[in-house]
């Protein structure tokens, strides 16, 4: 997978997370996975289809999701209820919308699915025939992994 697909997502995530959670944000080391990967407790999933196709996953632990949703709502959420899920969905929405603008400027055209939220323990994701690039982003509330598996349509 080409690294140019993931950069817009990482840049957009930095911009948006800084704006909604504050400046305390660091980028971890990018890594590549071609086999199944464990997914943490909460994952927001966005599908891409067009001249590139694949999916983006924003993956975090339940504790991190709760802390992020609490910060964005200005109140403490103790469970990931409908409001909490709507908050994480909106976060994924804002990041992907900004990333897509950057990708469109680079000449890639595709449509997005609305984000879906997966929650649960011991989940894993497998992408057949397409490697996933993962960039961990560390915020005050914990670690959010931006996991992108995209390829050009042949």
């Amino acid at each position: 997978m080409r690294v140019e697909y993931i950069n817009p997502f990482v840049e957009a995530a930095f911009d948006i997370l800084k704006e909604v959670l504050g400046d305390d944000i660091q980028r971890g080391e990018l890594y590549l996975k071609s086999t199944s990967q464990a997914v943490q407790g909460v994952a927001a999933f966005v599908g891409l289809a067009g001249n590139v196709e694949g999916r983006v996953l924003f993956d975090m632990s339940m504790e991190t999701a709760l802390a992020v949703a609490s910060e964005m709502n200005g109140e403490t959420l103790t469970e990931l209820d409908d409001l909490g899920k709507a908050t994480i969905t909106e976060l994924a929405n804002m990041i992907t919308a900004q990333a897509v603008t950057k990708l469109h400027d680079l000449g890639f055209t595709f449509d997005l699915t609305p984000p879906a939220i997966f929650t649960g323990e011991n989940m894993e994701i497998t992408d057949n025939e397409v490697e996933a690039l993962i960039v961990p982003v560390i915020v005050k509330q914990g670690k959010i992994e931006i996991n992108v598996a995209v390829r050009e349509r042949t």
Partner: peptide
């Protein structure tokens, strides 16, 4: 359509 955004704007 987002419960979160509705709440945020209202607040």
């Amino acid at each position: 359509d987002s419960m979160f955004v509705k709440k945020q704007i209202s607040q």
